[in-house]
Simulated scan of single mutants.
Amino acid sequence: MRVSEGSGPAAASAPAAHRSGLPAALTVLTLVSGFVDAVSYLGLGHVFAANMTGNVVIIGFAAAGAPGFSVLGSLTSLGAFLAGAVCAGRLSTAFAGRARRAWVRSVFVTEAVLLAVAAAIAFDRPGGATYALIAVLAWAMGLRNATVRKLAVPDMTTTVLTMTLTGLASESSLAGGTDPRAGRRLVSVAAMLGGAALGALLVLYHGLGWPLLAGALLVTGAAACCRESGAAGDTGAGDHRSA
């Protein structure tokens, strides 16, 4: 497998990424992001657990006196997200020189466990433990985002779509481009939209626990999709520049 310059676990070539099942796994994670933000925004006081740009904007709204937004909730989410990202960096260092599959699966399984913990909290204390739920969910998303950044699969950030939509438009045939990865970009948008819609329906009609449990099961399935069997040292470095 071809590796890129740098150090630490990261993305291989695009064909290798397809063989590993990463695009499919990351599409599932994008769907789950819609679940997570539906739970956090609709059920935990207008806070985002996956989309940190949203939290920064919300803090600005609240600082200006806009009603209905929680500065403490958004700060809790931001802090937990950053802590999760730090843990992801530590984990990638710990797995340096080992098969990438073990690193990726360990992160996905950890996210699944955290979502299951959040689901258990939501089932046990419906309407309570708001900040605990925010922290657990944002921690999981920070862990995942830092890992996906290192994987550097183009147009598969799993939590934000701004640059994906920008590329879809600016590199389209209408703009004189060749529509590179248009299918993947559209699938990412559809996965986020579908996840948000389904997550919202589950939250509105069945509470917070079921979308989180469904998310945990889906992420477990995503871990199983990563079939790559690279040997130790099959690592490179990458930096996910799509956001």
Rank of each mutant, 00 (worst) to 15 (best):
Met1Tyr: 04
Met1Pro: 02
Val3Leu: 04
Val3Tyr: 02
Ser4Glu: 10
Ala16Glu: 08
His18Pro: 00
Arg19Val: 01
Leu22Lys: 01
Leu29Arg: 01
Ser40Glu: 02
Ser40Gly: 14
Tyr41Ser: 03
Leu44Phe: 04
Gly45Arg: 01
His46Met: 02
His46Ile: 04
Asn51Leu: 03
Thr53Lys: 12
Val57His: 01
Phe61Val: 01
Ala62Gly: 03
Ala64Met: 11
Gly68Lys: 02
Val71Arg: 09
Thr76Ala: 15
Gly79Cys: 15
Ala80Arg: 08
Phe81Val: 00
Gly84Gln: 13
Ala85Gln: 09
Cys87His: 12
Gly89Gln: 06
Ser92His: 14
Thr93Asp: 15
Ala94Trp: 15
Arg98His: 14
Ala99Met: 07
Arg101Phe: 01
Val104Tyr: 12
Thr110Met: 15
Val117Lys: 12
Ala118Asn: 10
Ala119His: 07
Ala120Phe: 06
Ala120Met: 09
Asp124Phe: 10
Arg125Val: 11
Gly127His: 07
Gly127Cys: 03
Thr130Glu: 11
Thr130Ala: 08
Ile134Thr: 06
Ala138Gly: 12
Ala138Ser: 15
Trp139His: 14
Met141Asn: 15
Gly142Asp: 05
Asn145Met: 13
Ala152Val: 12
Ala152Ile: 10
Met156His: 15
Val160Asp: 04
Thr166Val: 09
Ala169Cys: 06
Ser172Glu: 08
Ser173Asn: 07
Ser173Gln: 09
Arg185Ile: 12
Arg185Leu: 14
Arg185Ala: 14
Leu186Pro: 11
Leu186Asn: 13
Ala190Asp: 09
Gly194Lys: 00
Ala196Leu: 09
Leu198Tyr: 03
Leu198Arg: 05
Gly199Glu: 04
Gly199Met: 06
Leu202Arg: 04
Leu204Ala: 11
Pro211Cys: 02
Pro211Phe: 01
Pro211Tyr: 02
Leu212Thr: 08
Leu212Cys: 04
Ala214His: 01
Gly215Ile: 08
Gly215Val: 03
Leu217Thr: 14
Leu217Gly: 08
Leu217Cys: 12
Leu218Ala: 13
Val219Pro: 11
Gly221Tyr: 09
Glu228Lys: 00
Gly230Trp: 11
Ala231His: 10
Thr235Leu: 11
His240Phe: 15
Arg241Glu: 14
Arg241His: 11
Arg241Pro: 00
